[in-house]
Structure formats: C-alpha cells, structure tokens
Amino acid sequence: MKLQIIRQRSLWWTLSSAIILSGIVAMIISWSQLGAPLRPGLDFVGGTRLQIELDCAVPSNCAKPIDPALVREVLAAQGLEGSTIQVLGDEKQALSIRTSALSVDQRTQLEKTLTERIGAFDPQKTQIDTVGPTLGRQLFTSGLLALLLSFVGIGLYLSFRFQLDYAVFAIVALLHDVLVTVGIFSMLGLALGIEVDNLFIVALLTIVGFSVNDTVVIYDRIRETVQTSGDRSINDIVDAAVNQTLARSINTTLTVLLPLVAIFFLGGETLKYFALALIIGFLMGAYSSIFIASTLLAWWRVRSGQEIQDGGKDQLVGAEE
C-alpha cells in the first residue's frame, strides 16, 4: 500500500473542513440553545449533584423502583423545580439529582425529605459534588489558559527543534484535532446530553501533547530526507516520509487506543467520556499528521519557492552512526 497523499490532498482538506464546519455549526446551535458551544457540566457552571442509592440492607426498602415523579414533587416542594432527575441502576434504586448550588442546610433538608418519602439511602454509596459558580468559572479559565500555554510551549519547542514553518503547521494540525474533538462533543451534547467537565479539558491537553508526536515523527523523517537528498522535490519527500512512517503512526496510535478502549468499557462512569474524548482526539491526531500537517508543509514549501532545498539549513542531532 502506498498513499498518494500529495495527489489526494484536496480530498483530505475537504474532508477535514467538512468535519470541522459541521462541528462549528453544532457549536452555534448549541450556543443558541444552551448559551455555550458545548453542554457545560457542573465543574464549569456550578451547582450540586447528589447521587444516592437506596440501602437494600434495610428491610423492604428496595421493594419498588424509585418513582421520578415523587422525586420531582419533593424537589418542587423545596423550590428546586428546574433540577434534573435521573433514576439509575438496573433495579432503579439509584438516583442522581442535579440542582443549582445548594447550601449545607438546603442539601441536608433535601436528603432528609427524600429519605422520608422514598426510603433510607446508603451513605457509603452517596456521592456529593457541589461547585460554587465562581469557582466553576475559575476552573474553566484556568483550563483554557493551560490549553493556550501548551500550544505556545509546543510551538516554541518545535520552532527551536525544526523550523518556523514546521512548527506553524504542526500547530495547525493540533488545532484541527482539538476542533474536531470539541465539535464532536458539541454534537454529543446536543444529541445525547453529554456534558463536558474538567476532565474534558484535561483530555484536550493530553490530545495536544500526544497527537503532535505523529506529526513530529513525520517531520523528523522529512527533515532527514531533505538533508540526505536535498535535490528531490518536497512533494516526493513528503510522500515518501509519510509512507515510511505510516506503520509506526498507525501502530503507536493503536497501542494507545487499546488501553483507552479498555477504560471506555470498563473504567466506570467518570472516565467513560474522558476516554471517548481521547479516542477521538488521538484518531484525529494520527489522521491530521498523515494527511494534513504533511500536505500543508509541502504546499507551503512549493508556494514559497522552497520546493527543492539543497542542503539542509537545520542540522540533525548527531550524524549517521
């Protein structure tokens, strides 16, 4: 198999643009419906989530499934009409309630009424998350800042190790990966109500750090070939470099995806969408390195009259054996 990536580049560019555009459309729709490009979770907007499960050790406590209508009634009586209620578990014995940020007294009151009306809950299976709205905003800004910082850091490192144009297109490829992942989660938020939390930003940062690897390996090979056979056209070199590193690009992505798939299926609720974001991002990372970062570099070098570069300006660290 030999990929003709340079010849097919308009196909890949169109494909990527289409995915990114539909992501942006999803974000715009999401913005008009939810006031945010993605469905924001508790971490960013603040609120209280109370997850409780009936204590089945208490006799006849688990006799019947939890009735959401009853829960809604309890919440309404406390002036918490706007809350989301989810009855969870195969036996419908668990409950997840998401409200605005509750004070200690409000929360204890709610727990007390729920216990009176529905049954005793097992404190060992309770999960409480309360995030104040100001803190949520702080978490969000610091997350975005971290993302920005790593973009700048990676850009600087690559322009130091390679050349400026390499670094710029590597960053473009990274933006591509992040945009696609964000776009897909925006759609997931609209279609399935999946929220993004703190871990989503962590996932984006991990994608940024890892996805650039494939790009670096391909660029490394391009640079090497430019130095050893500087009389070849950059289009040829890029084609060859991508094909020579193709097995590696696919295999490293695969070895990272395997554990992620394991986390997605077995890792529990908290890590599920974290793993999904990473799976999407890493897949995109491999794709953009092979089809986008490389073709963009070749296109730029041809355009700027550096199609054939005799002798490398940049030195490889160390020479052949």
Binding site: L139, G143, A146, S150, Y157, N198, V202, G209
Partner: peptide, 15 residues
C-alpha cells in the same frame, strides 16, 4: 518533550 510540555501546563494551571 511535547507531551511533557502539556503535562507541565496541566500541572501549573490545573487543580
């Protein structure tokens, strides 16, 4: 190194 840069950003700014 690029992965470590991201980790650093996370570590410095994360909670």
């Amino acid at each position: 190194v690029t992965s470590l840069i991201s980790c650093l950003a996370l570590f410095v700014l994360g909670t």
